[in-house]
């Protein structure tokens, strides 16, 4: 009786272990993704990553957890916590913590890291991405150059970091393409979230004669709306909130990047490479929000369409210029 009981117990334990193993296997079908953001998920940039990850979660491809508003000084600790918990893929932004984030990645070689960064990837597991949507920004520049009457475009940014500069520069190139004599007024407010301050900077530009505003920050489109001038959106689509004010937007889509990375992790082929290219138009990583022909004119839309085709077939390459943009005197 005793022996039988022991055997039964062993069987049960075996069955339980098998059950756990099975549960484990089904969990492994889903890639567990953890994201660490230095800003709240409302921030334009991060909102696009959050959106793409939530979409993948809805499709049942990943388990997704995240921490937002993590200070740079806490960043490594939070990365480590997720790595210790067994996340397969950790996504975040390493801009303010490049060295620390790379150190953490080196200590967890089994975990895949995909980080927003303007620097190269690092072997074996630290891949990078960035908002390389300069093509769409260039196209919005064409729109801005076509609609401006005063020939002065106001641009309000947070900080002149590569992620902001490259879009501003591409935008300026696009505007010069249709109107070589165009002038720009560039201001940085030294904050990511101070919409009242961004609004004041935008008001100052309208007072100075600008009739199109490049809205890098929240607050600029509000100023444009109040003063009755046009605004160009950036990264997110805010046209619905500002009908008739935001006339064109360069949108960033993180979905292609996320899909590639999740697939690579699932198939075990994740490498330290740059995913930046998946933000290009060719891969669907960026696009132009729909425009209203009544406002921007059919001619402009046709021109933008023509340039879009040129970008897609590779005959037009939009330069990536990360230098700080300057006002025209």
């Amino acid at each position: 009786m005793v022996r039988f009981g022991r055997r039964l117990a062993l069987c049960m334990m075996g069955a339980l272990a098998a059950g756990f193993a099975a549960a484990d296997a089904s969990a492994q079908d889903k890639v567990s993704v953890a994201a660490v953001y230095t800003v709240p998920i409302e921030q334009q940039w991060v909102s696009r990553i959050h959106l793409a990850l939530n979409a993948a979660k809805e499709r049942g491809e990943i388990d997704y957890v995240y921490s937002e508003n993590v200070a740079n000084t806490d960043y490594e600790r939070v990365m480590r916590e997720y790595a210790e918990q067994g996340a397969d893929l950790i996504i975040g932004e390493a801009f303010g913590v490049e060295r620390g984030a790379r150190n953490v990645a080196a200590q967890y070689p089994e975990t895949a890291f995909l980080m927003g960064s303007s620097l190269p990837a690092q072997e074996p597991n630290f891949a990078v991405f960035d908002n390389y949507i300069q093509e769409a920004a260039y196209l919005t520049g064409i729109v801005a150059g076509s609609v401006t009457k005063s020939g002065l475009i106001g641009m309000v940014g947070g900080y002149p970091i590569p992620e902001v500069n490259r879009l501003m520069n591409a935008f300026m190139d696009g505007a010069r393409e249709v109107r070589p004599d165009i002038k720009f007024s560039v201001t940085f407010i030294g904050s990511w979230y101070d919409p009242p301050k961004a609004k004041e900077a935008a008001f100052a530009m309208v007072d100075g004669g600008a009739d199109v505003l490049y809205a890098e920050r929240f607050g600029v489109s509000d100023a444009a709306k109040e003063r009755g001038v046009y605004a160009i959106g950036n990264v997110i689509d805010t046209a619905a909130d500002y009908p008739g004010t935001v006339i064109a937007s360069a949108l960033w889509h993180m979905e292609p990047t996320i899909e590639k990375a999740v697939e690579a992790v699932r198939s075990g082929s994740f490498k330290a490479e740059s995913y930046g290219v998946y933000s290009h138009m060719q891969y669907g990583g960026s696009s132009l929000a729909p425009m209203d022909p009544a406002i921007v004119g059919q001619e402009t839309i046709d021109l933008v369409e023509e340039k879009t085709q040129a970008i897609l077939d590779g005959s037009l390459v939009v330069e990536i210029d990360d230098a700080e943009p300057q006002s025209t005197l």
Binding site: V39, P40, E42, N69, S191, W192, Y193, D194, P195, P196, K197, K199, F218, G219, D222
Partner: peptide
């Protein structure tokens, strides 16, 4: 004033 007059929404760190 910041969220009801100068602007019309609340953001983290907007008191700045």
């Amino acid at each position: 004033f910041l969220t009801m007059s100068a602007f019309n929404a609340f953001f983290f760190e907007m008191v700045n």
